[in-house]
């Protein structure tokens, strides 16, 4: 339960943690784009090195970072298999009935798997180093220009922060109700299906009731404090770009350049897919 409570955020002090969330969001998007653009193994290698470097500066144990792969391990494996079996160009290395595995199929499958892993781990860097609240703050500021076309930036950010704020509360509540119902003999993880469904009902109904209750209380508390939307609202913590952010952008620029150069030169030699 506690895993959900805290999300992935890993609270240590590091230069990466102290960057402006907007910087981190933009740089993460760039990183993802450039992982996609990389056409060679060397390019992916550079991406991997870059991610490792950032991870090292951010002082996040590599073990934790790799843990985020666990959840999507199956998807990576599945993509690998799809590429392996359905990419039929190139020289066959193995044939059995309709199954045909080619050398470029293998290369492509490995390439795709690495690319996916880098994507997840790269995006993970953002959530590991940025607390959910900073993240929504950053997103709100980034989307603010879109207000002119009627995009409700503030409202969406507010909903996101409320949703995020309620994750630990709801997960604690789930834990509490589960315990209360287990104490009354409900069994959630074994036994006949009908009995388990019944136990889930005993969990979901109280959870829903209390969620509505809390929503109502929160709405009242917000109105009591004169909340009326984003118009004219100032913030406690004003986001500010500093020299550090400029430096981060510069490093990212160099990284992007390397990838572009790599694509232009090396891709002619070892072109993949």
């Amino acid at each position: 339960m506690k895993d959900i409570t805290l999300g992935q955020y890993y609270p240590v002090k590091s230069p990466v943690h102290s960057l402006d969330p907007r910087t981190k969001i933009i740089l993460t998007v760039l990183l993802i784009v450039f992982v996609f653009i990389s056409k060679t193994f060397a390019g992916l290698g550079i991406c991997a090195l870059f991610i490792l470097l950032v991870d090292f500066i951010a002082r996040i144990p590599l073990k934790n970072l790799l843990k985020s792969l666990k959840a999507i391990g199956f998807i990576i494996f599945f993509t690998f298999l799809l590429n392996l079996f359905f990419f039929t160009q190139g020289n066959a290395v193995f044939e059995y009935g309709i199954i045909k595995i080619t050398d470029s199929g293998i290369t492509r499958a490995v390439f795709m798997a690495i690319r996916l892993i880098l994507l997840i781990v790269g995006a993970g860097l953002l959530t590991f180093t940025t607390s959910p609240i900073e993240l929504t703050d950053g997103l709100e500021r980034l989307f603010t220009p879109l207000k002119v076309i009627g995009f409700p930036a503030h409202e969406i950010a507010m909903m996101m922060s409320i949703a995020l704020r309620f994750i630990p509360i709801l997960s604690e509540e789930t834990d509490k109700i589960m315990k209360a119902q287990s104490a009354r003999g409900a069994v959630f993880d074994q036994g006949k299906l009908t009995k388990r469904v019944k136990a889930i009902v005993a969990l979901l109904i109280p959870l829903l009731v209390s969620a509505f209750h809390r929503a109502l209380e929160l709405a009242n508390a917000m109105e009591a404090r004169c909340y009326h939307g984003g118009e004219g609202r100032t913030r406690l913590k004003v986001l500010k770009m500093t020299k550090k952010d400029a430096l981060a952008f510069a490093i990212m620029g160099i990284f992007c350049l390397i990838i572009v150069v790599d694509n232009l030169i090396l891709s002619k030699i070892f072109l993949v897919g």
């Binding site: 109700i177 315990k179 287990s182 104490a183 003999g185 005993a202 109280p206 009731v209 209390s210």
Partner: peptide, 17 residues
């Protein structure tokens, strides 16, 4: 053990369903 030890939690009314 769950039968022999009855447990009433804080605000037990939240477990009604």
């Amino acid at each position: 053990v769950r039968q022999k030890v009855g447990m009433v939690f804080q605000y037990p009314e939240y477990q009604l369903f």
